[in-house]
Design a protein around this nucleic acid. Structure first.
Length: 106
DNA sequence: CTTTTGACTGAGT
DNA sequence: AACTCAGCCAAAA
Protein backbone atom coordinates (compact mmCIF):
# COMPACT_ATOMS: atom_id res chain seq x y z
CA UNK A 1 0.00 0.00 0.00
CA UNK A 2 1.43 3.33 -1.01
CA UNK A 3 1.73 6.22 1.38
CA UNK A 4 -1.09 7.94 -0.42
CA UNK A 5 -3.56 5.17 0.30
CA UNK A 6 -2.63 5.25 3.96
CA UNK A 7 -3.45 8.93 4.00
CA UNK A 8 -6.82 8.27 2.44
CA UNK A 9 -7.55 5.62 5.04
CA UNK A 10 -6.92 8.12 7.82
CA UNK A 11 -8.93 10.90 6.23
CA UNK A 12 -11.87 8.60 5.67
CA UNK A 13 -11.95 7.96 9.41
CA UNK A 14 -12.47 11.59 10.26
CA UNK A 15 -16.00 11.88 11.70
CA UNK A 16 -18.41 14.52 10.46
CA UNK A 17 -18.23 17.78 12.35
CA UNK A 18 -14.52 17.32 13.03
CA UNK A 19 -11.38 18.40 11.24
CA UNK A 20 -7.80 17.21 11.19
CA UNK A 21 -4.52 18.83 10.24
CA UNK A 22 -2.01 17.46 7.77
CA UNK A 23 0.60 17.15 10.48
CA UNK A 24 -1.80 15.20 12.63
CA UNK A 25 -2.52 12.74 9.88
CA UNK A 26 1.15 12.38 9.14
CA UNK A 27 1.75 11.74 12.82
CA UNK A 28 -0.90 9.04 12.88
CA UNK A 29 1.01 7.37 10.10
CA UNK A 30 4.11 7.52 12.26
CA UNK A 31 5.80 10.02 9.98
CA UNK A 32 5.20 13.53 11.37
CA UNK A 33 7.69 15.07 8.97
CA UNK A 34 5.70 14.08 5.92
CA UNK A 35 2.82 16.45 6.48
CA UNK A 36 3.48 17.86 3.05
CA UNK A 37 3.08 14.49 1.43
CA UNK A 38 -0.28 14.13 3.13
CA UNK A 39 -1.45 17.41 1.66
CA UNK A 40 -0.17 16.44 -1.70
CA UNK A 41 -1.95 13.11 -1.57
CA UNK A 42 -5.20 14.94 -0.96
CA UNK A 43 -4.41 17.39 -3.71
CA UNK A 44 -4.49 14.54 -6.16
CA UNK A 45 -7.53 13.16 -4.37
CA UNK A 46 -8.17 10.18 -6.67
CA UNK A 47 -10.96 9.10 -4.33
CA UNK A 48 -12.92 12.30 -4.65
CA UNK A 49 -16.36 11.57 -3.29
CA UNK A 50 -15.06 8.93 -0.89
CA UNK A 51 -12.39 10.82 0.99
CA UNK A 52 -13.75 13.82 2.96
CA UNK A 53 -10.72 15.93 2.18
CA UNK A 54 -12.73 19.03 3.01
CA UNK A 55 -12.30 18.07 6.66
CA UNK A 56 -8.55 18.38 6.41
CA UNK A 57 -7.07 21.79 7.07
CA UNK A 58 -3.65 23.27 7.71
CA UNK A 59 -2.19 23.96 11.14
CA UNK A 60 -3.87 27.34 11.21
CA UNK A 61 -7.28 25.78 10.91
CA UNK A 62 -7.78 27.44 7.57
CA UNK A 63 -8.92 25.83 4.37
CA UNK A 64 -5.95 25.23 2.17
CA UNK A 65 -5.63 26.66 -1.29
CA UNK A 66 -6.03 24.40 -4.25
CA UNK A 67 -9.57 23.25 -3.67
CA UNK A 68 -10.55 20.19 -5.60
CA UNK A 69 -14.20 20.71 -4.77
CA UNK A 70 -15.06 23.37 -7.27
CA UNK A 71 -14.31 26.39 -5.12
CA UNK A 72 -13.55 27.63 -1.61
CA UNK A 73 -17.17 28.58 -1.03
CA UNK A 74 -18.29 25.05 -1.73
CA UNK A 75 -15.85 23.60 0.75
CA UNK A 76 -16.72 26.10 3.42
CA UNK A 77 -20.38 25.39 2.87
CA UNK A 78 -19.73 21.67 3.21
CA UNK A 79 -17.92 22.17 6.49
CA UNK A 80 -20.66 24.39 7.86
CA UNK A 81 -23.11 21.73 6.87
CA UNK A 82 -21.08 19.30 8.96
CA UNK A 83 -21.68 21.59 11.92
CA UNK A 84 -18.36 23.39 11.85
CA UNK A 85 -18.45 27.11 12.53
CA UNK A 86 -15.94 29.51 11.03
CA UNK A 87 -14.75 32.54 12.95
CA UNK A 88 -14.66 36.08 11.61
CA UNK A 89 -11.31 35.32 10.04
CA UNK A 90 -12.72 32.41 8.09
CA UNK A 91 -10.81 29.98 10.29
CA UNK A 92 -11.92 26.95 12.26
CA UNK A 93 -11.69 26.72 16.04
CA UNK A 94 -9.31 23.78 16.20
CA UNK A 95 -9.57 23.71 19.98
CA UNK A 96 -13.16 22.69 19.47
CA UNK A 97 -13.30 20.90 16.15
CA UNK A 98 -9.94 19.16 15.98
CA UNK A 99 -10.39 15.43 15.63
CA UNK A 100 -9.04 13.37 18.51
CA UNK A 101 -8.23 9.84 17.31
CA UNK A 102 -7.69 8.56 20.85
CA UNK A 103 -7.48 4.90 20.02
CA UNK A 104 -7.28 5.47 16.29
CA UNK A 105 -10.35 3.40 15.64
CA UNK A 106 -8.99 1.28 13.02
C1' DC B 1 17.71 8.27 -13.50
C1' DT B 2 17.91 13.49 -11.75
C1' DT B 3 15.41 17.61 -10.64
C1' DT B 4 11.55 20.13 -9.20
C1' DT B 5 7.63 20.69 -6.54
C1' DG B 6 4.23 20.86 -3.09
C1' DA B 7 -3.63 21.19 0.12
C1' DC B 8 2.86 21.65 5.40
C1' DT B 9 5.21 22.76 9.76
C1' DG B 10 8.18 24.69 13.16
C1' DA B 11 11.53 27.99 14.28
C1' DG B 12 13.44 32.44 13.58
C1' DT B 13 13.01 37.54 12.52
C1' DA C 1 1.16 38.67 16.32
C1' DA C 2 2.49 38.51 11.36
C1' DC C 3 5.94 37.34 7.90
C1' DT C 4 9.94 34.75 6.23
C1' DC C 5 13.26 30.82 5.87
C1' DA C 6 14.57 26.30 5.67
C1' DG C 7 13.67 21.30 5.94
C1' DC C 8 11.33 17.39 5.24
C1' DC C 9 10.28 13.29 1.59
C1' DA C 10 7.33 11.00 -1.95
C1' DA C 11 5.43 11.49 -6.54
C1' DA C 12 5.49 13.75 -11.07
C1' DA C 13 8.00 15.71 -15.03
Amino acid sequence: MSYFEKVYEIVKKIPAGKVATYGQIARLLGTPERAKIVGWALHKNPYYGEVPCHRVVNRNGEISSGFAFGGPFEQKKMLEKEGIIFDENGKINLNKYLWNPYEFQE
